[in-house]
Design a protein around this nucleic acid. Structure first.
Lengths: 128, 128
DNA sequence: TTCGTATTCAACGAGTTAGTTGATCAACCG
DNA sequence: CGGTTGATCAACTAACTCGTTGAATACGAA
């Protein structure tokens, strides 16, 4: 049974996964195409097993997927997961800028920027 | 002395900080404007001290700053930090999409999309 | 000064993480 | 078949995280 893709847990794991420099370098490497565990481990001084665990963390975060090729297990980046992260960040980043725009509107109410776009801000996160 | 803003450490901390649902809700709340520790703690069932620690984590990640107002300590979101995160993600996300475009070019070499743009990919992260 | 409010500090326990080494499994090669 | 390669599993440790409670600090009000 696959884990629920809409759960916050995925987002948690994805952010935490990118919080480690080893895993960020792995993602960076994978952005240039798939690679085997051995390939990914080569630039690091830690053991292959440690890198395998890092890949597992990335996989559970939905950031990468593993396929099979004989005894190799090529790892592929899942760009959709990266988009989800930017989507989360942008939501609140843009709201912040929008609130500045609202402030501007308050201070200079004579120049309406655009005719009242309510925007698609609908999500269950933090609505106290 | 301020910590080096270009260090990976900040990026590490920022990603890890957003990997916790409590901290993401705090960021979401702050995107609507500054708030005191008490304000931020109110929606949660954990202790005020625990929330104070979460804010500390966000502060050390450069995501928020604390000011002073009598005995209150209003917390402000630092949108620049959020932009740094999207910048990191987009760099590799976009490279990935570009490589797909390159693949398309390989498979259909008769239609050059654009005259060889090498792109500004210059950074110390993962260049094996 | 004393009291109340807002917040942080300090010490602690349970749980998690990142690394290690040694053993095991799976697939190819001769 | 036996050996090699590629990767994972298992067990363990050191260090960190998240929450707790109790005490301390800082400021404003009476």
């Amino acid at each position: 049974m696959l884990p629920d893709p809409t759960s916050d847990d995925r987002l948690d794991r994805a952010f935490v996964a990118l919080g480690d420099p080893v895993r960020r370098r792995i993602v960076a490497r994978l952005s240039r195409g798939p690679a085997t565990v051995g390939d990914l481990a080569a630039p690091f001084e830690i053991s292959l097993q440690a890198v395998s665990k890092h890949i597992q963390v990335l996989e559970q975060a939905g950031l990468v997927t593993r396929t099979r090729d004989a005894q190799r297990r090529p790892v592929h980046l899942n760009p959709g997961a990266l988009e989800e992260l930017t989507a989360w960040i942008d939501r609140y980043r843009l709201i912040h800028e929008q609130s500045y725009r609202s402030l501007d509107a308050l201070l200079a109410p004579a120049v309406p920027d655009r005719p009242a776009d309510p925007g698609p801000v609908t999500h269950q996160e933090e609505r106290p």
